[in-house]
Amino acid sequence: MSDRAGIGETPLAVEHEERPELRHHFADVEQQRNAATLGMWWFLGTEIMFFGGMFCAYLVYRRWYFPEFAASSRSLDLIVGTLNTAVLICSSLTVAMSVRAAQLGRRTLQVKLLLATIFFGLVFLGVKAYEWNNKYKEHHIPTFSFSANDLIKENQKLFGLDQLQNDPAKLQERKAEIQRRSQIFFSLYFALTGMHAIHMVIGVGLFGVITWMAYKGRFTPEYHTPLEIAGLYWHFVDIVWIYLFPLLYLIDRRPGA
């Protein structure tokens, strides 16, 4: 346990600095900044557990229903997914660079980079919407006339259907089962990507405010905490996607399988 953490380093006895951003109950800007970043880190810990519950469900059903999960995963567009991941990584770069620009006090660059971040974020969401729309057209959204017929057609061998052709009753049942199990995959797919997208929307909104503040020149090399903690949030959302991408898109892409 670190004794005196934040005390020895930040004596409260110093006179109350006169800074516009300093809130009354903090002794100095340093303390305020440390509190804000620490709070954000704890919040990200909470967020990990928030996605954790869904990851747990995902892992259980992936073990149970591997063929259906593999086939459903293959129906997602790999190229679009990969490019979208790249878009999100670009946005992470621009966020990191904008914090750097703030550290160096380069306001115009900072605003440009923030605008780029918002742009990338919106592109990501746009692509996401495009993918969901495709899923809608393919009848892959649970309860919205969900149908796994295309999966069944494309994965005859994986599901062992080719050997059932001369037994319609049995074929029918196996198809119904594939329908149920792939629906579980898509339930989890929409729950996970939906929750991620909600985080992205919040992130874009947050960065809208941050950009406006940057434009107004609120951030200086000494003080840019809101930008910093918004950045932490953005990177976290990026990391979630870094895991979601292989877990959802790459369950089994082996050519022979």
Partner: peptide, 20 residues
């Protein structure tokens, strides 16, 4: 957060028939 997401899944199950 774990119970939060779990209850959301129950709510989605009732409203959107997720079936998890």
């Amino acid at each position: 957060p774990v119970i939060a997401i779990t209850l959301v899944l129950v709510v989605l199950e009732r409203t959107l028939n997720l079936g998890i």
